[in-house]
Computed example of a mutant assay.
Amino acid sequence: MKNFKWMALAALAAALALPFTRPVVAAPFGDTLDSPAIQSEKAVSGAFTGLASAGKRLVAVGQRGHIFYSDDAGVRWHQAHVPVSSDLVAVQFPSPTQGWTVGHDGVVLHSDNKGETWSRQLDGRHIGQIMLEHYQRQSAPNEVLLAEAQRMIDEGADKPLLDVWFTDEKTGYVVGAFNLILRTDDGGQTWVPLMDRTDNPGALNFYGMRAIGDDLFIVGEQGLVLKLDPTTQRFVNVPTPYSGSYFGITGTPGAVLVYGLRGNVYRSTDHGANWEKVELGVSSSITTSTVTTEGRIILVSQAGHVMVSADNGATFTQQPQVRLGPTAAVQAIASDVVVVAGTQGLRQLPFE
């Protein structure tokens, strides 16, 4: 199986044809967690994998711990100060000042000044111990999860985190490979593992997490879609017609869309109870999305197709093809302009 999102984020264009599987023997984690990101003007032309708005500011994250921010809609970029050089994958700001980014080595970074400087809140050296202590305290310890926690401790820092979602400045989640999910209710000061609260018995990878309206969804490999049950606080399975990998979720309060391999997009207007396929006319994997302030939904494919919907995702219009290269993230900055991030750096892109 080709898990494109992880390949694109982990190794980008050089690894687009390789599957992501658990290593048999964990490699030493080196010093990426101990080495700050190198300050370099050339880094803005490198590979970026995440984009977010911090109020009117744009923040981009990418390889080697590089984070850049722009106050003029992506025309000029300034490098942030980052305490690690681990590859960063995703970023989100639930408010204009407070933001979080996640990535390789289980790293979780926080900024309280619109992305100019960042501090470490969590990393893969500690996730296993957090898991072990949490599941040891349960009245009926789960031996499978205890063994998984010990494995994580033994393997070291190699804990890929692939997405982050905060509902506000206090409550948030991070998700990653092999059912890895943690929650915080104090802005990242402490974290609680939720691996026992997911309908994911195969420990499939989590690729994306988003709130659409009042619903919080997770998507992953092999057609996995989960939705948070607010009563039980459990992420329950949501069946869909597709068994391939989903890389992301998008939508408006009236419709949710999941998208992934080979141009597959499915849409639900009843909170995930029923799904219909959205025909795009492309066979390339859909890797990223954004929604404009007017509610237009934008999807971008691995091959650089840009598709826009003005009817809550029921239909999409393909924009004239441009040479984007492999694209990992997109962020709307105006009603007719987005910024895209990928192997060729950061660029503005107008659309109709």
Rank of each mutant, 00 (worst) to 15 (best):
W6F: 10
A11R: 07
A11K: 03
A14K: 15
P19S: 12
P23M: 01
V24L: 12
V25M: 00
A26K: 00
A26M: 06
F29N: 13
D31H: 03
D34S: 10
S35E: 05
I38T: 06
S45W: 01
F48R: 02
G50W: 01
G50K: 00
G50D: 02
A52P: 00
A52E: 02
G65W: 00
F68T: 02
D71V: 06
V75E: 15
W77M: 06
H78L: 06
S85C: 02
D87I: 05
D87R: 04
L88P: 01
V89A: 08
Q92S: 05
F93D: 03
T97E: 11
W100C: 09
T101M: 04
T101E: 04
V107E: 02
S111Q: 03
N113M: 01
N113W: 00
T117L: 07
S119M: 06
R120V: 01
R120F: 00
D123K: 08
G124M: 04
Q129L: 12
M131A: 10
H134M: 09
Y135T: 14
Q136M: 13
R137T: 06
L146W: 06
A149Q: 11
R151L: 15
E155T: 09
E155D: 13
L161H: 07
L162M: 12
L162H: 10
D163H: 12
V164M: 02
V175C: 11
G176E: 03
N179C: 10
D185F: 12
V192A: 13
L194M: 06
N200V: 15
G202M: 06
A203T: 14
N205A: 14
F206A: 11
F217H: 04
F217Y: 10
I218C: 15
G220C: 15
G223D: 06
T231F: 05
T232F: 08
F235M: 05
V236F: 05
P241D: 01
G244C: 04
S245K: 02
G248Q: 12
T252M: 13
L257G: 10
L261T: 12
R267C: 00
S268M: 03
D270E: 02
H271D: 06
K277A: 09
E279C: 03
E279R: 08
V282A: 05
S283P: 14
S284R: 07
S284Y: 08
T290G: 11
T293N: 12
I298D: 08
Q302R: 13
A303F: 09
H305G: 04
V308R: 05
S309K: 01
S309M: 08
D311A: 13
T315Y: 07
P320D: 09
Q321V: 15
R323N: 15
L324P: 14
A328V: 14
A329F: 00
V330S: 03
Q331N: 09
A332N: 03
I333N: 05
I333G: 08
V338A: 05
V338R: 09
V340S: 06
G342K: 12
T343I: 07
R347S: 09
E352I: 01
